[in-house]
Design a protein around this nucleic acid. Structure first.
Lengths: 247, 247
DNA sequence: CGAGAAGTTGACGCGGCTCAAACACCGTGG
DNA sequence: CCACGGTGTTTGAGCCGCGTCAACTTCTCG
């Protein structure tokens, strides 16, 4: 079941066996990509989308000085560039963070999927809108928080999302973002990211183990520092997409 | 033709007469809303979406100190909270900037629309993804630019979008955002927004006429300061959604 | 003519940037 | 075996962009 995590991590509802079967069948092939490799550049036309089975990926835009601004971190279960299906080209670059296993889904297959299963189509629409919600919170992070809180906020989001796909044990943070990645995500310099991590360490919130390995010690403290409210991830049971199928 | 601007501003392609007729017919009523009035609060469940016919609106999230972070500025032709159709509740607040005329579209009507016109459904999906693209650029703005460039970048985006709906004459900027609104959009204080505008004025980029009225003098200079590349608005003729209908 | 909202400006402090150096760890090759 | 370079992390010193606090002006409207 390649797409099993898609359900847990992104769709927020159950699909019928026919729908999951059709989704599974629309995968043309799977491929393995080495770490830190750019797959798509800004402006590139695409006619496949990639579902992330294993590993983690980054989406980013570059400014004219070659500096990178991260806009998204993808984890297993994310349909990384499904928005490329309606948009036809991407306004940002996509690359791997770690080695990744990807499932390739051709856009014509998506068209067939959603025409045959309109309900699945709305679910896929929803999954692309979750990116929008996460982008909005990313804007909040950059516009309203200081450096230390920005990092805490990003960690909180990722911990919450990782729990959806059962990839976080409460201590060992499984995404090996380097300090310069946090800097590029949070709009600060790597030096200042380091100082912010030092402060988080001194507060007892986490332990750094080098090369992006982080051990979480006090999640509640991170949530408090970040003013984190996870409702924007639409994970609560009583507000699921399935309610809309009543229409 | 209430929804005429939707085509120009958001859909980036042509619709058939049947499609536009059905879209038009799905409007239950139009309503007028006074300026600076909040319509929807974060977390609120919705079962209508609003298409903006006239005026301008803001979308924002609040932090726990009551400070406001803008995440979007809506102009005529925008389907302000169409993403609320698949999501069922909003993760942000929505309010008017000026007095607005809104067209109310019930969500069940949207379901009927997209089931009868799958092509229109994909077009509406696209229009919600345009928000995502603008959000990403908003992240870039906050994460990679200084205060003066952030304001310039926001102005550039809005000028470009206003041109799509033929609402910008090249001089008089028709959205009366106050300096504190620019501050809330750009993650700076109102005082510093004022100093940044002063700098833009001294460069000869624009003239401030009070109460949010701005006259644009040197658009090229603003584009340069902002490192603005408008391709993310998907306005270029050769990359329109219509190409995907080949599938 | 008083009150409030928007804009403007100055003085001062702090958060984050820049430049620089040093340290830890690892894989490679002599 | 150790020397070595590369990468990631850590820390210090000094500076600057932006925040804070406060005063003042202008305009509008009651």
């Amino acid at each position: 079941m390649l797409t099993e995590l898609f359900l847990k991590g992104r769709l927020r509802q159950n699909l019928s066996p026919e729908e999951t079967g059709a989704l599974e069948a629309s995968v043309r092939r799977t491929l393995t990509v080495p770490p830190r490799k750019q797959l798509i550049e800004r402006g590139q036309r695409i006619d496949n989308s990639y579902y992330l089975v294993e590993g983690s990926m980054l989406r980013y835009v570059d400014n004219r000085r070659g500096e990178r601004q991260l806009v998204s971190v993808a984890i297993p279960g994310d349909f990384v560039d499904l928005h490329g299906y309606p948009m036809k080209r991407l306004d940002h670059a996509v690359g791997t963070l770690t080695a990744c296993v990807l499932a390739e889904v051709p856009h014509p297959a998506v068209t067939q999927l959603i025409e045959k299963f309109p309900h699945l189509g709305r679910a896929m629409w929803f999954s692309t809108l979750l990116d929008g919600a996460m982008h909005r919170e990313w804007i909040f992070r950059l516009g309203s928080l200081n450096a230390e809180s920005r990092i805490a906020h990003l960690l909180c989001e990722l911990m919450t999302r990782l729990r959806f796909v059962e990839m976080f044990d409460g201590r060992n943070f499984p995404i090996p973002l380097l300090q310069r990645d946090y800097a590029e995500a949070c709009g600060i310099t790597p030096v200042h990211a380091n100082r912010s991590f030092k402060s988080l360490r001194e507060r007892g919130a986490l332990i750094l183990q080098g090369e992006g390995r982080i051990e979480i010690l006090d999640e509640a403290l991170l949530v408090k520092l970040a003013e984190f409210e996870g409702d924007y991830l639409y994970g609560s049971g009583d507000l699921q997409l399935s309610e809309m199928t009543d229409y």
